[in-house]
Write a protein that binds this DNA or RNA. Sequence first.
DNA 1: AAGACGTGGGG
DNA 2: TCCCCAAGTCT
Length: 359
Amino acid sequence: MHFTHQDTQRLAASMLEWYDRHHRTLPWRSEPGDTPDPYHVWLSEIMLQQTTVQTVGPYFAAFLKRWPTVTDLANAELDDVLHAWQGLGYYARARNLHKCAKVVASEYDGVFPDTEEGLLKLPGIGPYTACAVAAIAFNRHASPVDGNIERVISRLFALETPLPDVKPEIKEKSAALTPSDRPGDYAQALMDLGATVCTPRNPACGICPWQADCEGRKSGIAPDLPKKRKKDPKPTRVGYAFWIRREDDGRILVRRRPEKGLLGGLYEVPGSDWRAIEAPDDVMLSEAPVSANWSELDGTVGHTFTHFHLNVSVLATTLPADHADKLEGSWTTIDGLSDFALPTIMKKIVRHALKYGPA
DNA sequence: AAGACGTGGGG
DNA sequence: TCCCCAAGTCT
């Protein structure tokens, strides 16, 4: 399948026309004709990595309100950024977001670089985001390829090679279709189309501006594209959470996780390691922050991460203050828990402890 | 280069 | 219930 130069111009034009009529108004999108704020574009693109528009909305608004400029964000404390990010997931994004803001503020005088290669050097900005920001914020002739565009292009050309092998071919085909005029709108058009028309399941080919040219639709395989390699089943891990209450004031112990790795920099109810195979109770118990008289609460807390399922049992105890004060971490009231950046698994553990724990 | 890295919604 | 999916990056 090959398009002539004339074909590509026609396809780009019909896509932009579709965008002008059907594009969504999103908080980070400038009005047509207005120059977008690179800070807004960058912030939204980082938040939107592997995350839905609906989920991002409130976070984007809250960040912009609290940190109106990239310099404001650079001057923030990391813990405050992680706190504002809690629940959004992939927390390395928040750490890199903060790092990136600091670099832009200190080394670029608060002004984002306006080229793909300049952007690519910044923390948390990879090939997709560099391309997207260059196109959307700076109107550069760049062709970002995200999951939506992979789907649209693989269908348009009926590419049956599975991802990720087919990625270079998609990149090449997509670049060849990208117009010099309005490359940013064109990129957003493809993403909108992928999100609302050329959807993973039940694509609405009947209303697609490219239906007449789509090889995938014509051969009836569009809904099955792009092909992907099968994923390995997720293993299940188990562990304990230690709900430790200080006797005199009823405060609870929380602690900050190491900055690298899973849930890095967020706070946790102290816990054992999460193991693939259930270890004997005494091994898990030896990982408690303190030796104590534990009572196991009813039920378990289940949570699924990207690459494993987790089942946590909660052990509760109450410690005399002189004993409690030797432990590492922060003692907080229940209400005060909202001041800490807690990932969803920890919120579940807190909820479970409050529901089943000793009164 | 393949695996680590979150979460919530939809079918 | 369970699997797939969402504007990927880092190591």
